[in-house]
Design a protein around this nucleic acid. Sequence first.
RNA 1: GGGCGAGUAGCUCAGCUGGUCUAGAGCGCCUGCCUUACAAGCAGGAGGUCGCUGGUUCGAAUCCAGUUUCGCCCACCA
Length: 781
Amino acid sequence: DAFVQRVWEWVDEYGTRIRAQLQKIGCSCDWERDRFTLDEGLSGAVREVFVRLYEKDLIYRANYIINWCPRCQTALSNEEVEHKDLSGHLYHLNYPLADGSGRHVTVATTRPETMLGDTAVAVHPEDERHSDLVGLNVELPLTGRTIPVIADEYVDPEFGSGVVKVTPAHDPNDFEIGRRHDLPEIDVMNGDATLSAGAPEAYRGLDRFEARKRVLADLENEGLLESTESHEHSVGHCYRCHTVIEPRLSLQWFVKMKPLAEPALEAYRDGRLRFHPARFGNIYENWMVNVRDWCISRQLWWGHRIPVWYCRNADCGDPIVSREDPAECPKCGGGLRQDEDVLDTWFSSWLWPFSTLGWPDETEDLKAFYPTHTLVTDPGILFFWVARMVMSGIEFMGDIPFTDVLLNGVVRDSTGRRMSKSLGNGIDPLAVVDQFGADAMRYRLIASSGLGTDLQLDHEDIENAFRVGRNFGNKIWNAVRFALPYLEGWDGTLPETDAPCLADRWILSRFNRAVLEITDYFERFRLQDAADAAYHFIWDDFCDWYLELSKHRLRGDAGEEARAAAAGTLGTVLDGWLRLLHPIMPFITEELASHLPKAVVRDTLVMGPWPAASAKLADAEADQAFDELREFVSSVRNMRAEYKVDPGRGVPVVLTGVSGPLQTGLEHEGAGVRTLARLTEIQYADSVPEEPGAQAVLRGGTQVFLALEGLVDLSKERERIEAEHERVKSFLAQTRAKLENKKFTAGAPPEVVDREREKLHSLVEREALLVEKRGALSRSP
RNA sequence: GGGCGAGUAGCUCAGCUGGUCUAGAGCGCCUGCCUUACAAGCAGGAGGUCGCUGGUUCGAAUCCAGUUUCGCCCACCA
């Protein structure tokens, strides 16, 4: 509660400050330029990290071509740029040679306005077509400038004319070429992408797209626009305001990434760091290998100020990087000016695994919770966040922050688009929580997205999307509510009995298997399978069969010893199962567990132990007997439904050739079975009665006869038996063909062959019985 | 341009190391039930040539190759 209180105070405080700030500057949009500083919370750690990296020479300031959003007027990192395929134009421009020969070279560009900043044209050094040009000059149209022809390996002779215009201040590759050849860098644009004083006077002040039209028109007038062709290419856009970005030469702060990436890559390669699903490891590795320096300065009004100061006295010296705000210049005592820029938000996020625990102080929390085990996150921020947390963890804590990274799927709408606020196709989680409950939402999300796969939900039909979770919550709520009265006085143990009843043996065996399965699924991050296993255990096995069969014992109808045994089993299974489900539906399981007898639940589920499997509970005999019991009940129910027997009406059944497991099952659970199938009695006979009735043959060979005088239509019964016979026949044919194939019996593993033989054996028996029945029916009137 | 994922019932998804798969679940659909935990439930049922083509194998939804559709990530080709 104290923590939540603190969070709300923080939100209030900063919310108020943000609103005040926005009002002050009359801002209705988030790209207006102003700033305020986060001077609390984690900024101490952020500043510490900046200073340490700077001292290790891992932070530097440099002029470089960065991605620039002219609308936000800030630098963007590569990850903040989204590329969209657009159909645009490729323009071919002619630049006349300056030797008066009348010859020209042709260059291609998608951004003609940048030609105003060209400072060379380049050809490949081994391109024989153009080797005579190298060293000559060309006249740069519209500018009155003359620029050289240079040779550089970067140029691809296969592409276009093999001649490239070089604009060092407006293109990253050209920038590199310019540095290699010591070319001037002419910046022709302002921060808002209007043409600057670097451009000829005629274009100054024009917006970049306006300038593009003007340049093209002017070139056309001079006969220097060779041609225009349509061109598909991908164009970078700002991830926030979707404006086309402009590569821009500017002075920014960078983090050197190679030295940080190497140990982070090593951690993955030697297996200390694992990704689920594993394929994300390749993506991580690829990024780490090709990592580029990280531009961390942003020209925004929101964020941590860069802890760098400059002396107002120009020429005084290096920037001052400091943990404390310096009052004056340590060299000359002059006034200082702090760097205007703030840090990229990820520069604080990458410290999250330790900065939130009090770092750089050596706190108890830090000792207890660093490193942790699993990070669960969206695959979209693998580079932004995950990779960088690994790097900072190794750099500042000496160890990776977590060993396992679980990348969950993305929720999409019914047409497959990612849900987002701007598309308006999202689902408000709080509305879902209101209508269906937090657990219902959580269950649905976990249960329908397999490891590494996305999930589609229809945002226009929330009912359909989330009712599964709500219904499941209701089901277990009702089941526990039903069970609670029978658990009064239960001491939390499983009673020792000489002759435990079959249903108890079976549900315990089944529960034991559920513990093993679900534990295994969680350990392998197969959350969907864990949810599915928990769901079917409680709904199908526990509610539909175990509870129904145990009601009479729980009421005490079978005596005190049987009641206590049933109650103990009921409690043991429920208590353990609530723990298994707890990670998936934390609230409802915690609530329900709190109603179990105090002797059992001493602590909350979230703090309590995970259920342990016990080999003693595994019971193959009970499993098989129960399976056959279930098949028997189902077959009776099916026949009753086929012949539309009044649900309230009990009927007798006659069994012939009862299999061993079913015999065992009926001896122990006959009373319960009669209730489930609405049977008045279960008779055993050596042969099937001659009178008309509904018949079935179970997998174990048991023949079931339901005397339904007056209800059974012989032709319908013939059809039923016929259909059943056809199914068994085709299955039998397949099995037989397999076993007659020498290559199969020789090549397949012995246990597979044995299994097929057993299958064949029981199928042969069933088929014979069905043939006999079919014959009998066709002889009947 | 490079890399990756997905395509299985009307819908949303499972099916992991090829053989209990005669391919499952939930929702939806059809039939019958208000059976004292639960009608947001119970019981029964219908519904699929596993995107397409070829290959490997005794055996393929599963492995391989090709192909097609959708989606994602990465990338400086003017």
